[in-house]
Protein backbone atom coordinates (compact mmCIF):
# COMPACT_ATOMS: atom_id res chain seq x y z
CA UNK A 1 0.00 0.00 0.00
CA UNK A 2 2.77 2.41 0.98
CA UNK A 3 4.75 1.56 -2.14
CA UNK A 4 1.62 2.18 -4.21
CA UNK A 5 1.09 5.61 -2.64
CA UNK A 6 4.74 6.57 -3.12
CA UNK A 7 4.71 5.40 -6.74
CA UNK A 8 1.50 7.35 -7.38
CA UNK A 9 3.03 10.50 -5.86
CA UNK A 10 6.25 10.06 -7.86
CA UNK A 11 4.20 9.67 -11.05
CA UNK A 12 2.36 12.89 -10.23
CA UNK A 13 5.70 14.60 -9.63
CA UNK A 14 7.02 13.43 -12.99
CA UNK A 15 3.81 14.68 -14.59
CA UNK A 16 4.19 18.05 -12.86
CA UNK A 17 7.75 18.35 -14.17
CA UNK A 18 6.68 17.58 -17.76
CA UNK A 19 3.88 20.16 -17.64
CA UNK A 20 6.27 22.61 -15.96
CA UNK A 21 8.87 22.19 -18.70
CA UNK A 22 6.28 22.66 -21.46
CA UNK A 23 4.53 25.66 -19.90
CA UNK A 24 5.39 29.13 -21.21
CA UNK A 25 3.42 30.96 -18.52
CA UNK A 26 5.83 31.73 -15.68
CA UNK A 27 3.04 32.07 -13.10
CA UNK A 28 1.91 28.53 -13.89
CA UNK A 29 5.55 27.39 -13.67
CA UNK A 30 5.92 28.83 -10.15
CA UNK A 31 2.64 27.32 -8.95
CA UNK A 32 3.66 23.95 -10.44
CA UNK A 33 6.97 24.25 -8.61
CA UNK A 34 5.00 24.63 -5.36
CA UNK A 35 2.85 21.62 -6.28
CA UNK A 36 6.02 19.61 -6.92
CA UNK A 37 7.40 20.57 -3.50
CA UNK A 38 4.19 19.61 -1.72
CA UNK A 39 4.16 16.24 -3.49
CA UNK A 40 7.79 15.76 -2.47
CA UNK A 41 6.90 16.62 1.14
CA UNK A 42 4.12 14.01 1.03
CA UNK A 43 6.54 11.40 -0.31
CA UNK A 44 8.90 12.22 2.57
CA UNK A 45 6.05 11.79 5.08
CA UNK A 46 5.29 8.41 3.52
CA UNK A 47 9.00 7.54 3.96
CA UNK A 48 8.75 8.50 7.69
CA UNK A 49 11.18 11.42 7.27
CA UNK A 50 8.83 13.90 8.92
CA UNK A 51 11.54 16.43 9.79
CA UNK A 52 12.67 16.67 6.18
CA UNK A 53 9.06 16.77 4.96
CA UNK A 54 8.36 19.75 7.20
CA UNK A 55 11.37 21.62 5.84
CA UNK A 56 10.45 20.79 2.25
CA UNK A 57 6.88 22.02 2.74
CA UNK A 58 7.97 25.24 4.46
CA UNK A 59 11.00 26.14 2.32
CA UNK A 60 10.27 24.45 -1.01
CA UNK A 61 6.58 25.13 -1.27
CA UNK A 62 6.29 28.21 0.93
CA UNK A 63 9.27 30.58 0.91
CA UNK A 64 10.62 29.67 -2.55
CA UNK A 65 7.21 30.18 -4.14
CA UNK A 66 6.83 33.59 -2.50
CA UNK A 67 10.35 34.64 -3.56
CA UNK A 68 9.75 33.48 -7.14
CA UNK A 69 6.44 35.36 -7.23
CA UNK A 70 8.36 38.40 -6.02
CA UNK A 71 10.82 37.91 -8.86
CA UNK A 72 7.95 37.45 -11.33
CA UNK A 73 6.70 40.86 -10.26
CA UNK A 74 9.87 42.31 -11.84
CA UNK A 75 9.59 40.61 -15.24
CA UNK A 76 7.07 39.49 -17.85
CA UNK A 77 4.59 36.71 -17.15
CA UNK A 78 5.15 35.00 -20.49
CA UNK A 79 8.45 33.26 -21.13
CA UNK A 80 10.23 34.55 -24.24
CA UNK A 81 10.44 32.18 -27.21
CA UNK A 82 13.66 30.14 -26.99
CA UNK A 83 16.20 30.97 -29.69
CA UNK A 84 17.92 27.57 -29.54
CA UNK A 85 16.56 24.15 -30.36
CA UNK A 86 16.04 22.08 -27.19
CA UNK A 87 17.82 18.96 -28.50
CA UNK A 88 21.31 19.57 -27.03
CA UNK A 89 20.08 20.43 -23.49
CA UNK A 90 17.67 17.52 -23.70
CA UNK A 91 20.50 15.17 -24.65
CA UNK A 92 22.66 16.49 -21.78
CA UNK A 93 19.79 16.06 -19.31
CA UNK A 94 19.02 12.53 -20.53
CA UNK A 95 22.72 11.64 -20.41
CA UNK A 96 23.04 12.90 -16.82
CA UNK A 97 19.86 11.04 -15.83
CA UNK A 98 21.21 7.83 -17.41
CA UNK A 99 24.52 8.16 -15.52
CA UNK A 100 22.66 8.81 -12.24
CA UNK A 101 20.35 5.83 -12.82
CA UNK A 102 23.42 3.69 -13.58
CA UNK A 103 24.94 4.93 -10.31
CA UNK A 104 21.94 3.76 -8.29
CA UNK A 105 22.39 0.18 -9.56
CA UNK A 106 25.28 -0.38 -7.15
CA UNK A 107 23.48 1.09 -4.13
CA UNK A 108 22.19 -1.29 -1.44
CA UNK A 109 18.48 -2.08 -1.58
CA UNK A 110 16.16 0.64 -0.20
CA UNK A 111 16.01 0.63 3.64
CA UNK A 112 18.25 -2.45 3.80
CA UNK A 113 19.26 -2.71 7.50
CA UNK A 114 22.61 -4.23 6.49
CA UNK A 115 23.54 -1.28 4.26
CA UNK A 116 26.93 0.21 5.28
CA UNK A 117 25.35 3.52 6.31
CA UNK A 118 23.09 1.74 8.82
CA UNK A 119 25.76 -0.41 10.49
CA UNK A 120 28.33 2.34 11.16
CA UNK A 121 27.32 4.84 13.88
CA UNK A 122 23.55 4.93 13.27
CA UNK A 123 22.83 1.94 15.50
CA UNK A 124 24.88 3.51 18.30
CA UNK A 125 22.93 6.77 17.99
CA UNK A 126 19.62 4.91 18.09
CA UNK A 127 20.65 2.88 21.12
CA UNK A 128 22.39 5.54 23.18
CA UNK A 129 20.91 8.91 22.18
CA UNK A 130 18.14 8.78 24.78
CA UNK A 131 20.49 7.90 27.63
CA UNK A 132 23.22 10.34 26.61
CA UNK A 133 21.20 13.42 25.63
CA UNK A 134 17.74 12.84 27.13
CA UNK A 135 16.19 13.85 23.80
CA UNK A 136 13.64 11.34 22.46
CA UNK A 137 13.82 12.63 18.85
CA UNK A 138 17.03 11.08 17.56
CA UNK A 139 17.06 13.44 14.57
CA UNK A 140 17.33 16.44 16.90
CA UNK A 141 19.97 14.66 19.04
CA UNK A 142 22.11 13.90 15.97
CA UNK A 143 21.68 17.35 14.40
CA UNK A 144 22.25 19.49 17.46
CA UNK A 145 24.55 17.33 19.58
CA UNK A 146 26.42 14.51 17.81
CA UNK A 147 26.77 16.55 14.62
CA UNK A 148 26.84 19.97 16.26
CA UNK A 149 29.82 21.07 14.18
CA UNK A 150 27.97 20.34 10.93
CA UNK A 151 24.90 22.22 12.07
CA UNK A 152 27.04 25.21 13.08
CA UNK A 153 28.51 25.11 9.56
CA UNK A 154 25.02 24.97 8.05
CA UNK A 155 23.88 27.92 10.12
CA UNK A 156 26.91 29.87 8.92
CA UNK A 157 25.98 28.93 5.33
CA UNK A 158 22.44 30.28 5.85
CA UNK A 159 23.92 33.43 7.38
CA UNK A 160 26.30 33.82 4.43
CA UNK A 161 23.41 33.45 1.99
CA UNK A 162 21.54 36.25 3.76
CA UNK A 163 24.64 38.45 3.90
CA UNK A 164 25.25 37.79 0.19
CA UNK A 165 21.74 38.84 -0.76
CA UNK A 166 22.10 42.01 1.32
CA UNK A 167 25.44 42.81 -0.33
CA UNK A 168 24.03 42.23 -3.83
CA UNK A 169 20.71 44.06 -3.52
CA UNK A 170 21.49 46.92 -1.16
CA UNK A 171 23.45 48.97 -3.73
CA UNK A 172 20.26 49.40 -5.72
CA UNK A 173 20.36 53.21 -5.61
CA UNK A 174 23.81 53.49 -7.23
CA UNK A 175 22.93 50.94 -9.88
CA UNK A 176 19.67 52.52 -10.95
CA UNK A 177 21.12 54.31 -13.98
CA UNK A 178 23.04 51.32 -15.24
CA UNK A 179 20.03 49.06 -14.85
CA UNK A 180 17.92 51.46 -16.86
CA UNK A 181 20.34 51.29 -19.82
CA UNK A 182 20.39 47.50 -19.63
CA UNK A 183 16.62 47.39 -19.87
CA UNK A 184 16.80 49.60 -22.95
CA UNK A 185 19.28 47.29 -24.61
CA UNK A 186 17.18 44.18 -24.03
CA UNK A 187 14.18 46.09 -25.28
CA UNK A 188 15.95 46.88 -28.56
CA UNK A 189 17.14 43.36 -29.09
CA UNK A 190 13.65 41.92 -28.81
CA UNK A 191 12.13 41.37 -32.29
Amino acid sequence: METLIINLLLTMMALAVVILARSRNLFAVIVLGGVYSFLMATVLVALDAVDVAMTEAAVGAGISTVLLLGALHLCKTEEAKPIHRPWLPLAVACGTAAVLAYGTLDLPAFSDPQAPIHVHVASRYLAEAMAQTGVPNVVTAVLASYRGYDTLGETVVVFTAGAGVIALLRRRKNNNDRRATQTDFSGERRP
Partner: peptide
Protein backbone atom coordinates in the same frame (compact mmCIF):
# COMPACT_ATOMS: atom_id res chain seq x y z
CA UNK B 1 11.54 19.57 18.47
CA UNK B 2 13.17 17.45 21.15
CA UNK B 3 10.17 15.16 21.32
CA UNK B 4 8.56 15.27 17.89
CA UNK B 5 9.49 16.34 14.39
CA UNK B 6 10.80 19.85 14.08
CA UNK B 7 13.60 22.00 15.38
CA UNK B 8 15.24 25.35 14.91
CA UNK B 9 15.35 25.40 11.12
CA UNK B 10 11.69 24.52 10.59
CA UNK B 11 10.54 26.84 13.38
CA UNK B 12 12.55 29.72 11.95
CA UNK B 13 11.07 29.23 8.49
CA UNK B 14 7.50 29.01 9.85
Amino acid sequence: GDFGPGGGFQAGVI
